[in-house]
């Protein structure tokens, strides 16, 4: 275990965001150092038409490999995966990704809840769920699944989120292990413990 990183307590960090999320990811993900220990899986709500756009924009800026998750692909550490637009992203118990075209959840496909709930089963206490800015309530139920299975959850401070509805909905449903500021997130991705 790499003592430098709080993130080393986790095998997977699952991140969900919606409106306002892209700017945050654009700010946070390029800060991840090349020796970041965990895998990262991201669901961001975007229209299916904008396929691959986010990956194309963010990948060149990041030190970690950043790609769209492929069906039945093994989840590797120190890699950032994005749910493909138009598909739900799930993690299998054997820690491979699975895609699905099941009906939208919370009007969304990909849905944050679907990723969080399946990852909670696959990773249990080795999962950290982070919910960021957004204008709906996707992810709230999924965070509780993570908690119920002994994983940890961070919720962006609604006061700082450009769209506070999503973090607020999560906090209304149940407590988080930490309500994090942008500064907290910088420290977390940069390697040190929360302040």
């Amino acid at each position: 275990m790499n003592a430098k990183f709080l993130a080393a307590r986790f095998d997977l960090i699952a991140i969900g965001c919606s409106a306002g999320g892209f700017d945050l990811l654009n700010d946070l993900l390029p800060r991840l150092p090349a020796d970041f220990p965990a895998a990262i899986a991201v669901v961001i709500h975007i229209a299916p038409a904008s396929r691959n756009g986010i990956v194309e924009v963010l990948a060149p800026k990041c030190r970690l490999p950043l790609k769209e998750a492929e069906d039945k692909e093994l989840v590797r550490p120190a890699t950032i995966y994005f749910a493909p637009p138009g598909y739900h992203l799930l993690v299998e118990p054997d820690r491979r990704f699975t895609l699905s075209v099941d009906e939208p959840v919370n009007y969304s496909r990909p849905s944050i809840d679907v990723l969080f709930e399946s990852a909670a089963i696959a990773y249990r206490e080795r999962l950290l769920g982070i919910l960021l800015s957004g204008a709906n309530s996707d992810g709230a139920a999924g965070l509780q699944s993570i908690r119920n299975l002994k994983g940890k959850i961070f919720v962006q401070d609604p006061k700082e989120a450009t769209h506070p509805e999503m973090p607020r909905a999560a906090l209304d449903l149940g407590p988080a292990d930490a309500v994090v500021s942008l500064e907290d997130l910088y420290r977390f991705v940069g390697g040190s413990a929360l302040g």
């Binding site: 799930l90 299998e92 118990p93 699975t98 099941d102 709930e117 399946s118 089963i121």
Partner: peptide
């Protein structure tokens, strides 16, 4: 079938 999907369904 995929265990994660089946369980969800």
């Amino acid at each position: 079938y995929s265990p994660a999907s089946v369980r969800r369904r």
